[in-house]
Nucleic acid binder design. Structure first.
Lengths: 132, 132
DNA sequence: AATACCATGTAAGGAAAAATAACATATTAA
DNA sequence: TTAATATGTTATTTTTCCTTACATGGTATT
């Protein structure tokens, strides 16, 4: 519950999401336009993204790479949403698919970290003067 | 290792940190000026904070509440830093103090979440149109 | 081949957020 | 009282982000 919440919390500005996902602002906004993500807005109307949003964007990128178009991706996302609904309605200990979902999540997280650390020229500059 | 890294990653703009910690920008910058935190900088010179930074700020707030001044807090932080060094140098399974440190971290995390969820008028507005 | 659509690039103009710097001030310490 | 701390406030400048509009290379359709 707390963990879910944490991942759903809108914290990141678009600039960070761009770096984490290697997507352009244009792309991110376009995917929002097509309802693949729905980032929150700050008072001043700035998009604020959650880690869940970042996950979704990474997946979008991947699916696009695989030649799937917006409509297809939307379908995939909708299916997953429904699946989640079913899952939570008849709550058992921990289903197979749930486990897989968790694993997938973990892997994406790992992926993010990898991106941020290895692929330099992006986040690297943020680790400059972190002194000492 | 990955978890540490994650918490050290500079992701948040100062506005989010203000909301998470209930500190003013002035305060946050002042603490930085006094080397209690050292947030990274974006290309455009904007401060980018990590979750570790947020933790530190929450602790600073608490210590100030307790009547401790900058110098005192700096001391506390330095002591912890040294302690961490000792800990990692003679690495055993998981020391007592490490466990406590982890627990403290967890509690602070919980504290953040509580802040963000319950104390509305702050983050609440970010959860508006997160539709459906 | 011509046309249309899709995903993205790019540019303009404006608004919001954040930076620095300087001065003000209430409380605490000497 | 005077000095030092921690924070508020204001002004000015940069940086980031927003929306809108138009351009474009690739695919698919006719």
């Amino acid at each position: 519950m707390s963990r879910e919440f944490r991942r759903a919390m809108p914290l990141l500005p678009i600039s960070m999401v761009m770096q984490l996902t290697e997507l352009t602002a244009r792309q991110i906004r376009y995917y929002e336009e097509h309802k693949l993500i729905e980032p929150a807005r700050s008072e001043g109307n700035r998009r604020m993204f959650s880690l869940d949003d970042v996950d979704a964007l990474l997946e979008i990128r991947e699916l696009l790479d695989q030649g799937i178009n917006m409509a297809g991706i939307k379908k995939v996302f909708d299916m997953r949403k429904n699946n989640n609904y079913v899952k939570s309605s008849n709550k058992m200990a921990i289903s197979d698919s749930e486990l897989r979902s968790i694993l997938r999540e973990e892997m994406q997280q790992a992926q993010i970290m990898q991106k941020a650390s290895i692929r330099q020229g992006d986040l690297s500059r943020f680790f400059q003067a972190k002194g000492e």
